[in-house]
């Protein structure tokens, strides 16, 4: 019960910070608010008994923050406020309509889910209870990641390296001056 209350408090803070990030006057404070949301997610992971995820999220969030601040340092963190045009009104209407449609499907989907904290293991029973016997892994998340689904992890690593190559290629490119 305590976990739920703590999670609800952190989530409310995350929602407020998200609104701050979207409506911030300058980009640097928006980036900092986004970092705070990421570290709030770390706290949620710790409360939800996912220590591996907390470690990975701390690393990923820090790298994202460093890249974002580096980008802003290299350009500008002043956001120019231009008057609203007709395209903005279309975007607001789209946001509202998409919100309503997604709300309908969310209510549809949430009725199938079990209430918070009453999950039953179905497919992952083998992953949880046979991991020590089959793989010798004491950390089941790593057991799934490196043994039961090692091919998926290889695909993930391939995506990561492809992105690194892409980032290098884009950054090395000399822009055409015209």
């Amino acid at each position: 019960m305590n976990t739920e209350i703590y999670l609800a408090i952190i989530l409310v803070f995350m929602i407020i910070l998200a609104l701050v990030a979207i409506h911030a006057k300058d980009l640097l404070s928006a980036v900092i608010a986004q970092g705070a949301i990421g570290y709030g997610l770390v706290l949620c992971f710790l409360l939800l008994k996912a220590p591996d995820l907390a470690i990975v999220q701390i690393v990923a969030e820090t790298i994202t923050l460093i890249i974002m601040v580096a980008v802003l340092h290299d350009s500008t963190w002043v956001e120019r406020r231009l008057p609203m045009c007709r395209r903005d009104m279309v975007n607001y209407t789209m946001a509202l309509l998409l919100g309503v449609v997604l709300l309908y499907y969310f209510i549809d989907a949430i009725s199938v889910l079990q209430p918070f904290g009453e999950h039953t293991l179905r497919m992952s029973e083998v992953y949880a209870y046979k991991a020590i016997e089959l793989t010798g892994a004491t950390n089941f998340v790593k057991g799934v990641l490196w043994d039961f689904r090692a091919l998926d992890t290889m695909g993930e690593a391939a995506v990561l390296f492809t992105t690194a190559i892409g980032v290098l290629a884009i950054l090395r490119l000399k822009g055409k001056k015209n």
Binding site: T64, A128, V144, D152, I170
Partner: peptide, 27 residues
């Protein structure tokens, strides 16, 4: 024990999200 399967999938997704974010920021 807490379900390890969603945790594994989210671990993968966090890393992929980092990759996409750095790609968009480079562009």
């Amino acid at each position: 024990v807490v379900d390890p399967l969603p945790q594994t999938m989210v671990l993968t997704a966090i890393v992929i999200a980092l990759a996409t974010n750095s790609m968009i920021l480079t562009m």
